[in-house]
Nucleic acid binder design. Structure first.
Lengths: 248, 248
DNA sequence: CAAGATTAAAGTGTCGACAATCGACGATTA
DNA sequence: TAATCGTCGATTGTCGACACTTTAATCTTG
């Protein structure tokens, strides 16, 4: 048995695949804002907190780096990716691109069962809207869109969506509530599903464009509002965020 | 004032990045066929061969896994991804999706300079066609398409293309010569560029569809032909690495 | 002689250690 | 006082070691 110390406030890591678990834990910490953008991820700190050595932590950090959540600075360590508008735009641009595609694909491969699954998820969206739980709302929203990718049935496309979604969740988590009326969110999914059921590529892409484009503009606006305290998007010399030592 | 600051905006780093170097070396070994699909990547072997320890090798392998070149089997190690038609189709499907998008974007952002760069690359394609060097031809072909992504100016899109291209290079490297007439390759790029210059989204996507779709069908056909005989070629951990120790 | 059991070899997962490097702080100097 | 330089702690990059698993090779045994 391995001498595993007691993780204080962190979920215990029992199963194998330590690296994957650490990556997930780090990801959660990031998207939940416990590791704010710009903050440093100290390997030893994470390792100690989780009761493991630095090696698997490093590997997890590398994965998150390739995924885009972290950036590595050569002899200085890993940092949570900053909130640059450029990056937001690139993510949404790519998401729009693949979600149009996935939606059209999903329409082609839509079965009665998968149609029902989407329907039910819209119901969930409506129910969640009553809860006044923005985080949950965002989560169920993503679940709907993820379902579309699952139906599209391209594993690589799905993985890509998950990667983008993780980063978007971080952004959305930071700016808090995204829409004023949660029911509005739920409703806007209905015409999209209708278009998918109808199977008209043009109508589908139009609705996706509207739907994602709306979120894009909204997030962009809020991020722009949130960014000024940092001045312009000075990319180099990453220390414009002081060692805001909230590292885990 | 801060003590640092090299030239702003330069990626610079590169060199002392052992993990990145190992990842590149492994990638080359894979796309050049020295590590055939299905073969095992033994950490200790690679480490010894490169004169480093296993730690950075593992990190590099993890990156290549996330990129799709390797697959990890929990207590058994990393393996070069096998050549499944399903995977090929997924890659090309995604590539088609993003290349349409990138091409339309590139048209929007096309400057006289970037137009000339594309033109010149087509010239290179023609020149390369005379050399009877299939690998080189494929390389210059990718360079053209990569230029489109550069012009599209979305870093994430570009990274994604690079990831896909690496895997496609592996596939194409394995099936050897892709087209019968290299000049044909070069020529087919011209109407695509013309469409981009004209800036008609429909014409652009049509040409991209034709261009990429052609490669897709061709590769798919060849892979289908090639799959029964190959299957898996489990390699004994032996010397198949760089003829020199360019590392450390 | 084949199928299963046994043992040995190879390889992975993880750890702790150590030198090299970076950044902060304070002493030194103009 | 402000700027420069050197020192020191903190942290990274890399290594070698070790326990446990898987794979192979060998030995039983029906």
């Amino acid at each position: 048995m391995r001498p595993m110390s007691l993780p204080v406030g962190l979920p215990a890591l029992a199963d194998s695949d330590l690296v994957g678990q650490i990556a997930r834990i780090l990801m959660q910490a990031i998207v939940q804002g416990r590791l704010p953008p710009g903050s440093k991820v100290v390997e030893a700190g994470v390792a100690r907190e989780l009761g493991v050595s630095r090696a698997p932590v490093r590997e997890a950090a590398r994965l998150l780096e390739k995924q885009g959540l972290l950036v590595a600075s050569p002899r200085r360590g890993f940092f949570v990716r900053k909130l640059e508008i450029r990056n937001i735009d690139e993510i949404y641009d790519l998401r729009l691109c693949i979600e149009r595609h996935a939606s059209v694909l999903a329409a082609k491969r839509l079965s009665p069962e998968s149609r029902d699954v989407l329907r039910r998820q819209i119901d969930v969206l409506h129910q969640t809207a009553d809860l006044d739980d923005p985080a949950r709302q965002v989560e169920e929203d993503y679940r709907f869109h993820r379902l579309i990718f699952e139906i599209a049935d391209n594993r690589r496309l799905l993985r890509l969506f998950d990667d983008l979604a993780a980063e978007l969740r971080m952004v959305i988590g930071l700016i808090g509530r995204l829409y004023d009326d949660p029911h509005e969110i739920a409703r806007t999914h209905e015409p999209l599903l209708a278009a998918i059921e109808a199977g008209h590529p043009e109508r589908i892409t139009a609705h996706v464009d509207y739907h994602i484009g709306h979120a894009w503009r909204e997030v962009g606006r809020l991020v722009r509002e949130l960014t000024p305290p940092l001045g312009n998007a000075a990319e180099p010399s990453s220390i414009l965020f002081p060692t805001n030592g909230v590292t885990v």
